[in-house]
Simulated assay, not measured.
Amino acid sequence: MTTEFSEPQDIPELESLNLLEFGGEQDLVSTAIQHAQNALPEWTPRDSSTEVVLLESLALILGVEALALQSVGEEVTEQLMGLYGVTRHDGFNTEGQICFQVNGTEPLTVIPAGTRVRYEIEETDETVDFLTTEDATIVTAETLFGYAAIEAEDSGIEGNGIPVGTVLELVDTNILVDEVTISQATYGGESEESDESFRSRASAALSRMSNSLVIPDNFTAAMLMDPRVGRAMTLDIYNPSGTPKTPAPGHVTVAVADQFGEPLNAEVLADLQEVINRQALASLQVHLIAPTYTPVNIAVTVKRSLNSTVEEAKAAVISALTEWLSPATWEWVSKVDKNQITARVIGLPEITALDSTPADIALTGDAPLARAGTITVTVSN
């Protein structure tokens, strides 16, 4: 994927201690002085007095201790969850392919794996280093071009999407190479998992302390413990191959998707199927399926505010509805409620009134997720 590792939506929040909510050293001093004045009305604080200096000194000590203690919770959580097999996802390194153009001064040119090339991001002046993962062998009597797969040295999204033809810097000196260019657009980089996402998966793990999966929430939590899964919903006593809407005792079906609500590939689904089969009760037959995606087309007529243009009003409505109708955050409900459409549109600062809105829109299929389709906005003023 080419976006940041996001926080899963379907798991309970893990509460964390925030000692910094009480403020810094100056806030501690102010609170202590206020308490002293309340307890000793005759006392008047003066700068550089013994009492104030002592309070300030104590606040400096407590401020450092609070910062140190604040980091302890995160470290303990990470170490503890490692005992349950939940570790922070390191992200993925960007991949791609480059083309070496040589000068032909040697009949055979071999550019070894591990050769370093560099891409400079013009907007930020940052650089991304790539290493070749295979040799590039060029018989110059036949061609002056050779190709090699590359992988970014570090994980992250910065190297994604470099277009074909982009010239790279050859960091490792090689007098036989004239130019290095991208021959396959780079892809697949993903940043290290955020603290929020890791805590969410930790919460999912702690919500099911039994090794056996029994109740529906167990199956959902088990899938959300895997960093490849971001959305999960369990359909109890349901067989996707059976008669629709007919209870199927002994069957449990779990719909899974990635962090962005998109379908998982067949290889990942097969691996997850093995994992969940090992944990489920032997008497249960567990099915993994993809959600059912429904493109939702919406047409609304609105009145814009006086300080907004027609284009600004349209853009605001389209943006709000597109964000809402996202597989990454849709709440598995089987209906796009017209009242919800109204609430999201009428609350925009660019809109003063909603003249028309569609009726409720049904989402069919197992584990429904909405996806924004064509959104048509007519501005009537």
Rank of each mutant, 00 (worst) to 15 (best):
residue 301 T to M: 09
residue 252 V to C: 01
residue 209 M to C: 11
residue 359 A to K: 12
residue 290 A to I: 03
residue 318 I to Q: 12
residue 101 Q to F: 05
residue 231 R to S: 05
residue 40 L to N: 12
residue 113 A to R: 12
residue 81 M to V: 05
residue 148 A to H: 04
residue 208 R to G: 11
residue 297 N to L: 01
residue 64 V to C: 03
residue 69 L to Y: 12
residue 267 E to A: 13
residue 280 A to T: 08
residue 149 A to C: 05
residue 259 Q to W: 13
residue 246 T to W: 02
residue 51 E to V: 11
residue 269 L to R: 14
residue 370 A to I: 05
residue 248 A to V: 04
residue 250 G to L: 13
residue 123 E to C: 02
residue 261 G to A: 06
residue 193 E to P: 09
residue 8 P to W: 05
residue 57 S to Y: 08
residue 72 V to S: 00
residue 333 V to S: 15
residue 280 A to P: 01
residue 69 L to K: 04
residue 321 L to W: 04
residue 381 N to G: 10
residue 284 L to A: 15
residue 341 I to D: 03
residue 41 P to G: 07
residue 225 M to V: 13
residue 328 A to M: 09
residue 94 T to A: 14
residue 221 A to H: 14
residue 291 P to H: 06
residue 266 A to V: 14
residue 355 D to Q: 06
residue 304 R to K: 15
residue 232 A to Y: 05
residue 226 D to K: 01
residue 312 E to Q: 14
residue 7 E to I: 09
residue 109 T to R: 12
residue 348 L to I: 00
residue 190 E to I: 14
residue 174 N to Q: 07
residue 192 E to K: 15
residue 83 L to D: 11
residue 46 R to K: 14
residue 60 L to F: 10
residue 169 E to V: 10
residue 366 D to R: 11
residue 123 E to K: 13
residue 11 I to T: 14
residue 320 A to E: 14
residue 1 M to N: 12
residue 204 A to N: 09
residue 286 V to C: 00
residue 357 T to S: 13
residue 77 T to W: 10
residue 107 P to T: 12
residue 283 S to E: 06
residue 222 A to W: 06
residue 365 G to S: 09
residue 41 P to A: 02
residue 128 V to P: 02
residue 100 F to H: 04
residue 350 E to P: 00
residue 196 E to K: 06
residue 371 R to H: 01
residue 375 I to E: 06
residue 321 L to A: 05
residue 214 V to H: 09
residue 315 A to T: 09
residue 341 I to K: 05
residue 367 A to Q: 07
residue 97 Q to F: 06
residue 286 V to N: 01
residue 118 R to N: 11
residue 131 L to H: 04
residue 344 R to V: 00
residue 28 L to E: 02
residue 80 L to W: 08
residue 285 Q to A: 11
residue 305 S to Q: 10
residue 297 N to W: 02
residue 328 A to E: 10
residue 255 A to M: 06
residue 144 L to C: 00
residue 63 G to V: 05
residue 176 L to V: 05
residue 234 T to H: 02
residue 353 A to Q: 11
residue 328 A to T: 07
residue 371 R to C: 07
residue 266 A to E: 14
residue 58 L to G: 12
residue 233 M to K: 08
residue 100 F to M: 10
residue 140 T to E: 06
residue 227 P to M: 07
residue 287 H to K: 01
residue 155 S to H: 11
residue 228 R to G: 01
residue 148 A to S: 11
residue 170 L to R: 08
residue 87 T to W: 07
residue 173 T to K: 09
residue 77 T to M: 08
residue 246 T to E: 14
residue 209 M to V: 14
